[in-house]
Nucleic acid binder design. Sequence first.
DNA 1: CGAATTGATGTAATCGATTACAAGTCAGCA
DNA 2: TGCTGACTTGTAATCGATTACATCAATTCG
Lengths: 365, 365
Amino acid sequence: MADGFTAAEPTVATIKDVAREAGVSVATVSRVFNDRTVVSADTAQAVRDVATRLNYWPNAAARSLITSRTHTLGVLLPDMHGEFFSGVIRGLDVTARRNGFHLLVSSSHAGTDELVSALRSMRGRIDGLVVMAPNVETPAAIRDWVADTPVVLIDPRGGYEGFDSVSIANFEGAHSIVSHLMALGHRRIATVTGPLGNVDAAQRRNGYREALREGGGDLSLELEIAGDFTEPSGHAAMAALLKLDPRPTAVFVGNDHMALGVMRSLAETGVRVPEDIAVAGFDDIETARYLSPPLTTMRVDTFELGARAVDRLLLIVTALAQGVPIERTHQVLPATLVVRGSCGTSNGKPATLNAIRNHIPHHGR
Amino acid sequence: MADGFTAAEPTVATIKDVAREAGVSVATVSRVFNDRTVVSADTAQAVRDVATRLNYWPNAAARSLITSRTHTLGVLLPDMHGEFFSGVIRGLDVTARRNGFHLLVSSSHAGTDELVSALRSMRGRIDGLVVMAPNVETPAAIRDWVADTPVVLIDPRGGYEGFDSVSIANFEGAHSIVSHLMALGHRRIATVTGPLGNVDAAQRRNGYREALREGGGDLSLELEIAGDFTEPSGHAAMAALLKLDPRPTAVFVGNDHMALGVMRSLAETGVRVPEDIAVAGFDDIETARYLSPPLTTMRVDTFELGARAVDRLLLIVTALAQGVPIERTHQVLPATLVVRGSCGTSNGKPATLNAIRNHIPHHGR
DNA sequence: CGAATTGATGTAATCGATTACAAGTCAGCA
DNA sequence: TGCTGACTTGTAATCGATTACATCAATTCG
């Protein structure tokens, strides 16, 4: 190894090498590694010994060519990073490996074209596909390319006819946290939504509206401002909301990153949280609990999102292999309310100690 | 599609189907898709038309079986999440795809055994391998299994003889931030290190010691406490440090997650940052800039770490394919000092506005 | 004792591509 | 007209496995 890569490649042992060394046919070697039919104990042990000595392991490409099973799942993700991303990936990965499957990942897709080209080149490499659909036309776009490949969509933006899916209870989550604000006495509650046309954003806004309707809060378009899920857009949105008269007493922000911007805007203009205005977010990113005051938000279990997607996908893959019919399902993961300090308490006092009470340790890297 | 998966599988078109439909041989179809030799324009177009109509794309398994190239890179990662993880993955992914390569990811490895078994089953699936080595024995463990597969280690804990590597300038980074503290007037500086035996941790501690030595600060083992890179361990370590007499005037924490715990401990005991004690971290996680006060730390470019690893790996893969000899390299990525409020300023005043000055917007998901 | 059964193993087709080599067509030229 | 060479295209071997089927030896049983 010390001489770099100039040496002739010590080509990996194949099934033939093992067969020759062990004095048996390739069929027997194959049988030992697949224990389909019975091989005598002696022969099996001899083959296994030779295989170990030669560091032999069946070539995956050859194997999947003949069996047309790859034991690999494709994963298509939009360009994103941070905790949401890594949580989902972990859920996918852990679940896949627990079942002996690999993950062929292609993330960072800007648009549908890139996604389709990645998908196309996965042909023959995967048994199933998990797609986090970045935009509305994605499901339709991939349909032609998956043919007989099972697909599960994560948090589908563009509806999910024709595919299984796992998504987040956006409507219920928003409804829940806005109801929480109303229980605290707020009636004039603004919202900063995600980008128009984004289904998550729309569902969260609908949840917000419904909660207001039920609780008799102020329903008005001037209280709804669209951001784009980024911190700066939250900052800008809050600046606009502060010009309202009368000013809202609470803001439900469509995701935590925008809430970061909202808090910054408030800090800059000297508006106190939660005394002057209550702030609530969505997603429960790690930073949420370290803000001053810590952010009340809806927790989304990203790991579970990934895990369920793979669980479901493997179920479909197996059923398909056995020719068993299977119904399509659409799972919705609940979000849970995490109360911290940014919304105050019902007795009017800010709940500053929540930062500690609600602290959940995270792993380092 | 509406009837679920009960229908007979509409098997994907193969090269034979295209050949038959286009009235040519499979060799010609193959040539069109690989433009090795010249095919007449008419024939090529005809083939391409048929291929499009049949949604044909070469089967990757078959192709890589005969060419022994997979256009896929294996990625082995330890069990971790958060930004560090997703940053590295993005760097790997973007760079790989830019070069027409896929990523076969297997993360969340608890130990060397799991890692080796994942590695083994990648046989025949990958052209090269990126490994983030979780512990000291990993490089030795994988050596037997990679044979002629090129490998690049990311941030190798266990040294890197025999492999190319890309790592972080831990020593220099720690040296740099501790020197910053000394420039601010601190002489009695404690440190919370990562787990003993972890090379990152050791390098950072060495950088801390060297900076103290050069600047004439207090060098004492009582000022060094080992954590395990998690938030709770930082909390515990700070509690211990506060019992010291005289108390240190500054703490260099081995990573930001532990710094979170340190800050929490300080907040609980009423010790003010940076007035009573200065705190510095390492990694620059997103939360760092949202703390009160915002955390001074060393920024590590995780994306670049992944990107360089893949760049290097592809270089080796290409060189190997062409039989060109190539030297092993060990790249070290610099970390950069990010000054925020947690260390105060040289004139003694805390720099509370740094939170805003130093704000860098992040993408939402 | 010979036929039938059982168990272990080998032979060869197969998966879907790539590619060396062979072969065929056609134009140009003596 | 016949030969040469340039292009284009086809034939068939090959990659490394799996697996249906054949084969062969040993055992069982009427």
